[in-house]
Design a protein around this nucleic acid. Structure first.
Lengths: 259, 259
DNA sequence: CGGTTATTTGAAATACGTCAATTCAAGTGG
DNA sequence: CCACTTGAATTGACGTATTTCAAATAACCG
């Protein structure tokens, strides 16, 4: 398998999104923020993370950060990536997106490497997470470990939502639901606009739709003044209506759960 | 929320499947087999598992074994269950099936309880896995722990397959793919027939299809002499053709993964 | 500016869902 | 053993959501 990342011209990604490639410690900010969201990190732990900077790598859009079946824990310092699988006839399903500060290639179940490739959607920077995991592995109550488990738990929860979307939501519900999920994930829960540097083809492969149909759904949402995607940014005009369109209220354990 | 399990008449499940409610140690056989598949268990560990028998419970079809958002690790000793979520308008998506010997309500990410309910599809027996997890928790290299991690890893892999099915496979591909997965899981990889005590409504909710359409797909598969579902049993007539219909060859990391 | 990749639109085909009824299989109580 | 009941499976007719194919336009890049 040839690494297309190095030879291909970088796909155009509409919008103002340009990874900043911040220098030094600043590049770690997203990662540290996420790790510390669940448990305070000790100075020693923070130091450990900073030690990873030596292993920083840059990749162009389309680069395969992790081949399917391969192991190798990494963190995404900047940019956007996705985990996916491609069928032999070209159909592609994207399982999840990877945002700056999140990890991949790591699973609490080391026994079985995940059958999913991780691919860069924009220019990205990664660092090897191996040393950190090794160091944190001893005390499984360490702050780093708790942060990682929490991140993995969030990913797990997202996967369930994703299955609902793919299996039981209509196209427009899927789109609305996905945009709201991205709004939350980018930390723009209250902002009217946030970065979403994905091509429609990528979004279609997330949502299990054809590009053409996705485009029509987006047009409709725009016409209804719910949300607008332009040049890599999402503009949420009517968050309440968008949530309604997403059929958000997933109700648990109802009495007629089984019938 | 009322526990419908105790009041409802048990739904009829076509087919010869009747959980046997084996007595004593025999009931643990499926569980022990799965745990030991990845790492030999010490006599002490086996003893621990046998100690769980005291906490055995029986449930009728439809019983909610685990409410959405609740925690509480359990093993399924016999019968079939599923993890699912139900939307407020009644749409249901089944995330995974739970077979005898498998666990649920447990996750390596204790931080976040999974937003999925677990519901009995047949009469089932469960045992509380809490004591075992507590005991095994100390040495994370213990055989029990490795077995559990492997089971969780398998579930993880199934979820990815499931997302592919829901997002990118056609209805008949989904059905064929699902039946083959069940053939493997029931340990009947080579057998022409194996138990599959699911109503078409359940299967439809697994595969994200309507019951009516699922029924038509099954008719077609039967007409093509690929597979037949009758009275809770699946009869695979042509495994090779069925695999072809399932579009099984999921190819990893292809060069055009991104374009 | 030319070349390339994304987005957008239209028209036609198809896959899938809904509604409504019928048949079938398996208890259950007399 | 037999109506009777109930849930599941099956079928037909029809509507709609979504895909496919093909082409045009628009955005971006060097």
């Amino acid at each position: 398998v040839v690494d297309v990342a190095e030879t291909r011209p970088s796909p155009r990604l509409s919008g103002p999104f340009r990874p900043s490639f911040a220098d030094g410690a600043a590049a770690l900010a997203p990662l540290l923020r996420r790790l510390a969201a669940f448990a305070e990190l000790t100075p020693a732990e923070t130091g450990h993370v900073q030690g990873l900077l030596a292993r920083r790598r840059r990749w162009r859009p389309g680069a395969v950060l992790l081949a399917e079946g391969a192991a190798g824990a990494q963190f995404l310092l900047s940019g956007w990536a996705c985990s996916q699988r491609v069928l032999s006839d070209g159909r592609r399903q994207i399982f999840d997106l990877v945002l700056a500060g999140e990890g991949f290639g790591w699973s609490p179940f080391a026994e079985i490497p995940a059958q999913q490739a991780v691919v860069a959607l924009t220019s990205v920077e990664t660092i090897d997470a191996g040393p950190l995991l090794a160091a944190a592995g001893e005390g499984s109550q360490s702050g780093v470990w708790r942060g990682l488990r929490a991140l993995a738990g969030e990913a797990e929860a997202r996967r369930l939502d994703h299955m609902i979307r793919l299996g039981r939501l209509t196209a427009s519900e899927r789109v609305a639901h996905f945009i709201l999920e991205m709004q939350r994930r980018t930390g723009a829960a209250d902002a009217r606009s946030f970065p979403l540097p994905l091509t429609q083809e990528t979004m279609a492969d997330v949502l299990g739709l054809s590009v053409v149909h996705l485009n029509r759904v987006l047009r409709q949402l725009r016409a209804d003044r719910l949300v607008e995607l332009r040049r890599g940014m999402a503009l949420v005009s009517d968050a309440r209506a968008l949530a309604a369109a997403a059929f958000l209220p997933a109700v648990g354990d109802r009495a007629h759960a089984f019938r």
